[in-house]
Design a protein around this nucleic acid. Sequence first.
DNA 1: TCCATATTTCCAGCATATTCGAAATATGTA
DNA 2: TACATATTTCGAATATGCTGGAAATATGGA
Lengths: 108, 108
Amino acid sequence: MKSAVTSLAALAHEGRLAAFRLLVQAGGEGLAAGELARRLDMLPNTLSANLNILSHAGLVVAQRDGRSMIYRAQYDAMRDLLGFLVEDCCGGSPEICAPLMKVASDCC
Amino acid sequence: MKSAVTSLAALAHEGRLAAFRLLVQAGGEGLAAGELARRLDMLPNTLSANLNILSHAGLVVAQRDGRSMIYRAQYDAMRDLLGFLVEDCCGGSPEICAPLMKVASDCC
DNA sequence: TCCATATTTCCAGCATATTCGAAATATGTA
DNA sequence: TACATATTTCGAATATGCTGGAAATATGGA
């Protein structure tokens, strides 16, 4: 619950959400902080602060590669968050869960 | 995207997340504001402000019933949010989507 | 070593969010 | 009408979050 709030807060910011989505799309290769800053048109220091917040929430991890820092999305954390959000849905509310099945099956 | 950030911000608060989860569990009957305040041990005015934030995000709706205000979770908004969060998962990252399938099928 | 690149850290200022007490509003009941 | 209940609105204090400039750190190359 505490970590869900941390993750939600990390994603509840336009720049951070956009950064996270780019990292999800980038897949296992990840993206360098500078490349993210360019694509998102953010100042490097501002982006760094925001990546730090995503990292503290466990949604991304960083790894140094030469002069660059490569950031990658952490799928486990995202899965945990999604799992938490739908956790209660069968305790009275298949209305959420059933559409979710559709989203998931359309997607995969 | 903008509405996703609004919804995420609304849920990124311990009290609001707990309130929303209670409403999800409560199902179509919903819960009165006072009942929520009792269960969550929140002052009525504080809860009211927080319900207003959830309502503004479209995650709950309110309906007067006598002296009480009945709040209900809005499943469509939650489904949209979850859909948005997994939207990109197949653009390189079935790692998120596949576990989500499992979550959804375990649940329903 | 010296310099350029990549990124982070520090700091200050500004904006937004959170909470609470008190007062106001709406409804039901005697 | 008068009063109790349920909830919201208002206002102010406090806390937290966000941003950008400047400086610091880390790495690679000449």
